[in-house]
Amino acid sequence: MTAKKTPKPKKAKKNWRGTPSPDGLSHKKNETVRRCLATRETLPPERLIRFCVSPDRALVPDLARKLPGRGLWVTADKDLIAEAVAKGLFAKAAHAKLTYPDDLDALIRTLFVKRLQSLLGFAKKAGLVVSGFEKSAEALTKKQAFCLLEATDAATDGREKLNRLRGDTPVLSVLSADETARALGAGMGVHTVLKAGGPVDLFVAEAKRFGAYCKNEQV
């Protein structure tokens, strides 16, 4: 009696789509990437902004990448997104005539701020937020900080004092004091230390994407 051959295990499917970006960054072959409509580069989703088309054919920014429908992706860069609109790249990719928000840039900025505020709220609930100058200084001195969040309108002297304490701790400045306080509570918006943890990792990644979108201008 002839023995049955053992079937070979199936190879896992890879999520690789496209070719590596020429920007010098390496992407693993099993890493999901998307192609930018404007540059045609393939990049990780964390470096792009996803858009989708509503049933009434309006272009909708989808920062959380959760809305239904086919995604239209552009590098997180305000100029490239404006270029994609001006050249009709969204409409071409969607194979439809689209309508656009009156001020797409302002809408994207507002959505970024709301998303960052939500992530800050989660980080606070997880006990990963220390706010206020004295508490932030103490956390930096004790090396408890994953990153330092400074309000975009924080006073220069306070920034300089904490900068002398932070060493190589990264610093982010993407929300105003009022925007931060709305997420954390009154009086907690100028100087904030974030400790390592899931919500903070997401916040930092999103803050970097927002900074890239605004070209690291004072946002």
Rank of each mutant, 00 (worst) to 15 (best):
A3F: 14
K4W: 07
T6R: 15
P7G: 08
P7S: 03
K10D: 09
K10S: 13
K11Q: 13
R17P: 00
P20S: 06
D23P: 00
S26N: 10
H27S: 10
H27N: 08
K29Q: 11
V33H: 02
R34H: 12
R34Q: 10
C36T: 07
L37P: 07
A38G: 02
A38V: 03
T39W: 05
T42H: 14
E46V: 13
E46F: 07
R50A: 04
R50I: 08
S54R: 06
P55M: 06
D56E: 12
L59W: 07
L59C: 08
R65Q: 12
K66S: 11
L67E: 05
L67R: 10
P68L: 02
R70M: 10
W73Q: 02
W73A: 07
V74W: 03
V74P: 11
V74E: 02
D77G: 05
A84P: 07
A84M: 06
V85D: 02
A86E: 07
K87Q: 14
K87N: 09
K87A: 08
G88T: 07
L89N: 02
K92H: 12
A94M: 04
K97S: 13
K97D: 10
T99K: 12
T99C: 01
T99Q: 09
Y100G: 01
D102M: 09
D103C: 09
V113C: 03
R115E: 14
L116Y: 03
Q117S: 11
Q117N: 04
F122K: 15
A123N: 05
G127E: 00
V129Q: 04
V129H: 04
S131L: 06
F133D: 05
F133T: 12
E134D: 12
E134T: 14
E134C: 01
K135C: 01
S136Q: 03
A137M: 03
A139L: 04
L140V: 06
L140A: 10
T141F: 09
T141E: 11
K142G: 00
K143S: 12
A145R: 10
F146M: 12
C147H: 01
C147K: 04
L149D: 00
L149C: 01
T152A: 08
A154S: 15
A155G: 03
D157T: 11
R159W: 09
E160S: 13
E160A: 13
K161F: 02
R164I: 08
G167W: 13
D168S: 15
D168W: 03
T169Y: 01
L175D: 05
E179Q: 15
T180M: 09
A181L: 07
L184Y: 09
M188I: 00
M188G: 00
M188T: 08
V190R: 15
T192M: 09
L194M: 14
P199C: 06
D201T: 15
E206M: 15
A207T: 02
K208R: 14
R209I: 13
A212F: 10
Y213N: 06
C214G: 04
N216I: 00
Q218P: 01
Q218C: 05
